[in-house]
Design a protein around this nucleic acid. Structure first.
Length: 667
RNA sequence: GCCAGUUUAGCUCAGUGGUAGAGCACCCGAUUUGUAAUCGGACGGUCGUCGGUUCAAAUCCGACAACUGGCUCCA
């Protein structure tokens, strides 16, 4: 698994503009709520301009959740400003201003913004293609470049609320200045707004960080272990183990073989794979094993290489005269020679950020025949990625992660079948977890630059993408195609899911790689007695333990199905009479003999209290045992969230529990 | 990494310059109970860390760290 970390701002910027234009087109069909929110954004901007006339404005669109507006001003917004701004908005609503549309010429618009010193607006003006109408909307004294549409009057905006202040780079580019973004939301009426606020609170209760804390699933110890390095507590460890068990069974049945690889590798590994130039920033810094003098000698070579790479760059662009009279080929040759010399030093190890290179070396460890293919190497590999501090987010973005990884080495003929089987595995998992809302993002090459930005195999790109597309359609999979977001070595499929609280996740990735195996010199001997390079499919249907479990926690709100529940059964006695406790212990032991995670609560506490404890701990099944049950050889079943289901024979209940676990039933 | 906010007991939170608090959890004792809180007691904090201002700092100022909301990036 891997990422395309290509550092090329140009196509990115173009892509962004594309997205923004799309939203402009969509404004034509903007529904009532969006119009309302868009108008609320204008009112908020108007309010801000009344309070801070020096504010420079960027844009303020509606969003799924509400709206925002970006400002540049010396005053730093804080939540303490919200009441003042809302008060001003209230006045604007009371004034019941009309939203009035006017069309201006480009020159008029430019003059308007120059006069007002609205530099961001001037840039936005430049985005509007020649020939397209330049429209303004005015309410009261506030006038804004805007395609609309709006509600009729400010008085129509009745229920709104400022939510947060954040920052955002102008045009989303980190090289641009940072603006202050005010987020708010608006609804048709107060009741809908209140409902939304309540739903936000519910979402907070489902947050995996909160439930993880409550249930004792995982912890972070930033002081001693480090930020972004999760500790799995015993109950969270159960989830990890259960997922691995599921993956191992599914992969065994699908013909995978399991391998194990170390957590680090020499620099040469990531130079060869091609990751280092793209990816070094998100890897932990290397461990130096060289002696001082060796290191110095190597650093000299490294410096020389850096100079040569720069020279090659300028030769390529032909921007500077060539002082030494060297050709590009000569320089490249020298770089390659230096690479070899540098790698001979060894002594520099990286924690692995991906498992593929290790698996490639396993492929290379033995001679391979076409009869060995497809070879499916699977491993729950642990990877380390030095994510920027601001990117860390609970279990969803961490620095140490365990991936449901596998690499399938196959021939071009086998590709479609293999790829189809991978998809089937995804669907199988979705069914087990009751995931009906998912979407696959099929990322393909940049149509304008086939074979330039990416690995230069135009025919292979088109052929593979076509195969992938065909299989996706045949399998009836819900997907969208996104050009220009492929990995550098092949097309990729990201699986997106939505948690119950509406948070979107890229939960898994699936990539086709027809480049890296060649870089490692991987080959198999074909029927015709020639060596051929295999294709490689990277796949990780269960993503990483961290993110997948983070998702599952929110998906189930911590109420896991029986097979996953950290504590599956708790036996509660009515009192601590000796014969009663002995019977209850017998039930726990019998359950454990079937590998059911069962605990007993034999204290003298009231049954209400014990039930409450178990419910709060989200124990899946509670078995209440009193004198009546013991005499009848029964247990009273209570299921978390479902209440008391009544007494049933002990053996029957245990058999049902075991069966539900074995089948991984989804409730 | 950038902008802003937050950091007080295991958890949730009060405490705006003058002797650190509550509820829950943990621990101890009593309670012998039929499906979401039985009663009582004890324990627990260098107020994120370091520095500064002050007679006096949880409280004001600064640096750093972590976390949160965003931006950028992403499994």
């Amino acid at each position: 698994m891997n990422n395309d970390a290509e550092n090329n701002p140009q196509p990115m910027a173009a892509a962004k503009t594309e997205v923004q234009r799309k939203t402009l087109d969509q404004r034509e069909q903007m529904n009532e709520l969006m119009r309302l929110r868009h108008s609320a954004a204008h009112m908020m901007a108007a309010a801000v301009c009344r309070l801070w006339p020096e504010a420079r404005l960027d844009i303020g669109p509606p969003t799924e959740e509400g709206f925002y507006y970006d400002f540049d001003l010396p005053h730093r917004f804080s939540p303490e400003d919200f009441p003042r701004i809302e008060e001003e908005m209230r006045k604007i609503a009371k004034e019941n201003q009309v939203f009035e549309k006017t069309v201006r010429t480009r020159e008029e618009a430019r003059a308007h913004f120059v006069a007002k010193g609205q530099t961001y607006k001037l840039e936005r003006l430049g985005d509007i293609p020649e020939g397209e109408a330049i429209s303004f909307f005015q309410n009261g004294e506030f006038i804004d470049l805007c395609a609309g549409p709006h509600v009729m009057r400010t008085g129509n905006v009745k229920a709104y609320k400022l939510l947060s202040v954040a920052s955002a780079y102008f045009r989303g580019n980190e090289k641009n200045p940072q603006l202050q973004r005010l987020y708010g939301t608006a609804f048709r009426n107060k009741e809908e707004l209140e409902n939304w606020v309540k739903m936000q609170e519910e979402a907070k209760r489902r947050d995996h960080r909160r439930i993880g804390q409550e249930m004792g699933l995982f912890a972070f110890d930033s002081e001693y272990v480090g930020p972004g390095l999760a500790l799995w507590l015993p109950k969270g460890g159960v989830l990890v183990e259960e997922l691995e068990k599921l993956a191992k069974e599914a992969e065994f049945q699908a013909g995978y073989v399991r391998v194990r690889t170390p957590h680090l590798a020499k620099e040469k590994m990531y130079r060869t794979s091609g990751h280092l130039p793209y990816y070094a920033e998100s890897m932990f810094p290397p461990m130096e094993m060289l002696e001082e003098d060796e290191r110095k000698r190597r650093d000299v070579l490294v410096e020389k290489r850096a100079d040569l790479i720069q020279l090659a760059d300028s030769l390529e662009k032909a921007v500077s005269p060539n002082p030494a009279g060297l050709t590009l080929e000569q320089v490249r040759h020298d770089i390659a020679k230096l690479e070899t010399e540098i790698s001979l030093f060894g002594g520099r190890y990286y924690l692995k950020a991906m498992n593929c290179p290790h698996h490639h070396r396993i492929f290379a460890a033995e001679p391979r025949s076409y009869r060995d293919l497809p070879l499916r190497l699977a491993e729950y590999g642990t990877c380390y990625r030095y994510e920027q501090s601001g990117e860390l987010f609970g279990l969803m973005r961490v620095r140490a992660l365990q991936m449901n990884d596998a690499h399938i080495y196959c021939t071009a003929e086998q590709f479609a079948d293999e790829f189809r089987a991978v998809n089937e595995m995804y669907l199988k998992y979705f069914k087990i977890f009751g995931l009906d809302k998912y979407q696959m993002r099929f990322s393909t090459h940049d149509p304008a630059r086939l074979g330039q930005k990416f690995v230069n195999e135009p025919e292979l790109w088109l052929k593979t993408e076509d195969m992938v597309r065909r299989v996706l359609i045949e399998s009836g999979i819900n997907f969208v195609e996104v050009p220009n977001e492929a990995a550098f070595y092949g097309p990729k499929i990201d699986v997106q899911v939505w948690s119950a609280i509406g948070r979107e996740f890229t939960i898994a990735t699936n990539q086709v790689d027809f480049a890296v195996p060649a870089r490692f010199g991987l080959a198999y001997r074909d029927r015709d007695n020639t060596d051929k390079v295999p294709l490689c499919i990277h796949r990780a249907p269960l993503g990483t333990h961290e993110r997948f479990i983070g998702f599952l926690i929110e998906h189930y709100a911590g109420n896991f199905p029986l097979w996953l529940a950290p504590e599956q059964v708790r036996v509660l006695t009515l009192g601590d009479d000796e014969p009663l406790v002995a019977y209850a212990r017998g039930v726990v032991e019998e359950l454990r003999s079937h590998f059911v995670r069962a605990e007993g609560d034999y204290t003298t506490n009231k049954i209400n209290g014990k039930v409450q404890d178990a419910e709060k701990a989200r124990v899946h099944t509670m078995l209440v045992i009193g004198g009546r049950d013991r005499e009848a050889g029964a247990v009273s079943v209570r299921v978390h969230g479902k209440g008391n289901l009544g007494a049933r024979p002990r053996g029957e209940v245990i058999a049902d529990l075991v069966q539900s676990i074995r089948e991984r039933r989804s409730h």
